[in-house]
Amino acid sequence: MTTDATGTGTGTGTGTEPYVRVGRSGLFVDRVGLGTMQFGWSVDETGAFDVLDAYAELSGNFET
């Protein structure tokens, strides 16, 4: 994937590239992040694993 000076993906020009660069750091992250603050509080363990499984099936990742 190539990026412009702002870190926006420019590989296809559609804005649908899976990763974007964080500033000038060289770090690339998913365009969509998964917030898990509710896990263990209002979402039980089974529900949390269901959400994580769905996120992984949609190619989400936690790697940095």
Rank of each mutant, 00 (worst) to 15 (best):
Q38M: 12
G15K: 02
E45P: 06
A56N: 09
W41P: 00
S59L: 06
D30M: 10
L34C: 14
L27A: 12
G9N: 06
T8N: 05
Y55I: 12
E63F: 00
G13M: 06
T3D: 00
D4V: 03
T6R: 11
G7T: 05
T8Y: 00
T36Y: 10
V43M: 10
V29H: 04
G13A: 09
W41D: 10
R24A: 14
T46G: 14
G33C: 03
D50R: 08
Y55S: 11
T64V: 08
R24V: 09
V43I: 13
G47C: 03
P18F: 01
D44V: 12
E63L: 10
T2C: 06
E45Y: 02
D53W: 01
G60K: 00
T12E: 10
G9F: 01
E17S: 09
T12A: 10
G13R: 05
V20G: 02
R21G: 01
V51T: 14
T2L: 10
G26N: 08
F28G: 03
T6M: 04
T64C: 00
T8P: 01
R21I: 05
G47V: 05
D53V: 11
A56Q: 14
G33R: 12
Y55E: 14
R24L: 06
V43G: 02
M37Q: 06
G26M: 04
F49R: 15
F39G: 01
E57Q: 15
T36D: 12
R21N: 00
E57P: 00
F49P: 02
G11F: 08
T8Q: 09
T10G: 07
A48D: 07
A48P: 10
S25C: 08
Q38D: 13
F62S: 14
L52G: 08
A5H: 07
T36R: 15
E63C: 01
G47I: 00
V43E: 04
G9L: 05
S25K: 05
R31F: 00
R24K: 13
F28R: 12
D44H: 08
